[in-house]
């Protein structure tokens, strides 16, 4: 932990999203260093019927991009459960980009999306946001994405929405790049 707190990265990229969506996996796919993880066995996993997952993040995950000139970019994965919102308050305000990972194949995906957007808007973090829907094919029809697009536009008219796979490096890099490249809008302009 000392290594994380003892230095300052100039920029930070933050992954947020619900429990089990793949934030830690995404971080591992792109980090230059071994990801510092605070995962523990979770009793909630069995209740949610997740058979391919046995742990959850309780603090935050940390990785880095390191450049040849010495610059470093901090990569944070913050826990999904509401009881960890203090962690959000510590990390989100300084972020250069935020990727919100959501389950695209769940019946309550849209309600989930609204919940997370509200939480991000409360922390002025929608201005540099990309929303990544997992577990959907790349060629998903636009009509499937349209309700999400409409909802997200209420918080940030230009916020990007893509389908992505947290296990795939190119997919994660693309989601992060899109969040970084999206035209900035001030907090005033993005309040729903």
């Amino acid at each position: 932990m000392k290594a994380v707190l003892g230095h300052q990265t100039q920029q930070q990229v933050v992954f947020v999203g619900p429990f089990g969506v793949g934030k830690t996996t995404a971080l591992r796919a792109i980090s230059d260093i071994p990801v510092v993880s605070t995962e523990v066995a979770s009793s909630e996993i069995g209740q949610l019927g997740m058979t391919d997952k046995s742990t959850t993040t309780v603090g935050f995950d940390y990785g880095e991009w390191a450049f040849s000139d010495g610059d470093r970019v901090g990569l944070f994965g913050v826990p999904g459960q509401e009881r960890f919102h203090a962690m959000w308050d510590a990390v989100l305000p300084q972020s250069s980009a935020v990727v919100l990972w959501l389950f695209g194949d769940r019946a309550n995906a849209l309600a989930d999306c609204r919940f997370w957007l509200e939480a991000l808007a409360a922390r002025n973090a929608v201005a540099r946001l990309a929303v990544a829907l997992t577990r959907l094919p790349d060629d998903v029809p636009d009509r499937v994405l349209a309700p999400f697009r409409e909802l997200i536009a209420r918080y940030h008219p230009l916020a990007p929405l893509i389908t992505a796979d947290p296990r795939d490096q190119t997919s994660v890099v693309q989601a992060t790049l899109i969040a970084l490249a999206t035209p900035y809008m001030s907090a005033a302009a993005t309040t729903p």
């Binding site: 060629d139 008219p157 230009l158 990007p160 929405l161 893509i162 693309q174 899109i178 999206t182």
Partner: peptide, 19 residues
């Protein structure tokens, strides 16, 4: 608005074109 760029992962420069 941003299109779904999932089909364009082979060329990341498309992102800056969209921006």
């Amino acid at each position: 608005a941003w299109p779904n760029l999932a089909r364009f992962r082979r060329d990341l420069h498309v992102i800056t074109a969209c921006a």
